[in-house]
Design a binder for these strands. Structure first.
Lengths: 180, 180
DNA sequence: CTTAACCTTGACGTGAACGTGAAGGTTAGA
DNA sequence: TCTAACCTTCACGTTCACGTCAAGGTTAAG
């Protein structure tokens, strides 16, 4: 479809990889073309390479990155500005990677690895903080549930499981919908 | 201070609690007055009682609720519309609670408890889903860290075994006219 | 060469979630 | 009673995160 095959391009920049046009990237990531361009505009994505006609060519790495950004936004609820900060770290990480690959010097490589580790760990820490807060919320709900269960057991048992479905509780009944 | 003491109110709805004016609520929750009114407008908060001069009087429960809403938004990244759905469940829960307390009938009480349980469980499920997704993200970061650690250990004696599918990344070749 | 299906950059529109006055009423204290 | 500090309801403004044309260039195929 919109992958860029080697010889078809008049004189592209790089045509030996599975580079994608924006339409295909959009289809694969679920993001709209507008959104993708917007993310690039905000610096959430490194400027992709272009064909000589200025069509954007997205590397697999770019696509992965877009997925990361989308998830950050959806899962962590971060603003795009916050995500950019995180992702700028990612930039550095790739920079480190290329520096790593550019040398044979083991000590330099170790240094780069160490820096990449530090970076990734700080990203992880960010996620962990969110996680902890959500776990807290989860525990509150669980203790509430436990309280209900306790009350249920303490309530003297009668034989009736009859349905008295009148009154304003109909909403609650409706609220208990089926699960998938 | 903006707490409302009992006798000062001309003829409010309920004046035996530590009811607060919006300014104080704002100070305690960190939300602006505008935001609080907006949340009420959206139905995220039950309409608070009023003084005879129409000043809003927030119950401690209202304040708690505002805190919950704020956390939902911040932590889960939900839209206010989504939060309203969750919080409507909370409304029902309180309704159930008052109905529970209004009866001595054990079977009715069990029924109410059952409904409250169902409701809270569905809320918990929502939180759990988010949690699971974030854990996934966390694990990715951790595996990345693990990879770095592995590389670190392998580095002293080996050279360039690891190879991903990305080629050398060149920058855009023909200048886009609008680029800085 | 022609054409359809892509793509490009503007540029204006939109909904959500508030911010920011404006104009005026309420409350507590002197 | 008077006033400062609150509060009220409009109502328009703003930022974010895109949506949606519009006008025109590029690419692949016939």
């Amino acid at each position: 479809m919109q992958t860029v095959s080697s010889e078809k391009i008049a004189e592209p920049t790089t045509n030996d990889g599975p580079y994608l046009l924006i339409g295909e990237v959009s289809a694969r990531t679920g993001l709209t073309q507008r959104t993708i361009r917007y993310y690039e505009e905000l610096g959430l994505l490194p400027p992709p390479t272009r064909t000589h006609g200025d069509f954007r060519l997205f590397s697999p790495r770019d696509v992965t990155r877009l997925g990361q950004v989308a998830r950050m936004k959806k899962l962590l609820g971060f603003s795009l500005a916050e995500i950019r900060e995180i992702v700028e770290g990612e930039e550095v990480r790739e920079q480190l990677r290329s520096e790593y690959r550019a040398t044979e010097d083991a000590s330099v490589r170790l240094d780069k690895l160490e820096q990449a580790l530090t970076l990734t760990r700080s990203q992880l820490e960010l996620v962990d903080r969110k996680l902890a807060q959500i776990v807290e919320l989860k525990m509150e709900l669980e203790s509430r549930i436990a309280r209900y269960m306790r009350l249920k057991q303490e309530t003297p048992n009668t034989v009736a499981t009859e349905d008295s479905e009148d009154g304003p509780i109909r909403q609650a009944k409706r609220g208990a919908r089926n699960e998938g």
